[in-house]
Amino acid sequence: MCLGIPGEIVAITDPERLMALADVSGVRREVSLACVAEGPLEDLIGQWVLIHVGFAMSVIDADEAAKTLEALRALGEAQEAMEAMAAGQRALEEPR
């Protein structure tokens, strides 16, 4: 929960709410760009960002993203983040 995971911004989904689709190790998930949106949102497409609990917190370069992902995998934190994303998706669908 404390360590961010790198993802690549692939599309803007809701410009008004500053939401975008990010590719995180092959899994696509909607994230907020509120903390990194300084210029036009489109400029962020193709950029790597460090994502914390669904929020892009920092723009990083591709090399830093790759190294960070490797470090997170070694710590088991990348797997944990992926599982948490899947759990979040299930939580939305859980019928009650």
Binding site: R29, E30, S32, V53, G54, F55, A81, A84, M85, A87, G88, Q89, A91, L92, E94, R96
Partner: peptide, 18 residues
């Protein structure tokens, strides 16, 4: 109790909308 694990507070917000 209806307790759900989420990844992001945005998931919780979406649950509130739904």
């Amino acid at each position: 109790a209806d307790i759900r694990m989420v990844y992001s507070p945005l998931d919780a917000l979406e649950l509130a909308r739904r």
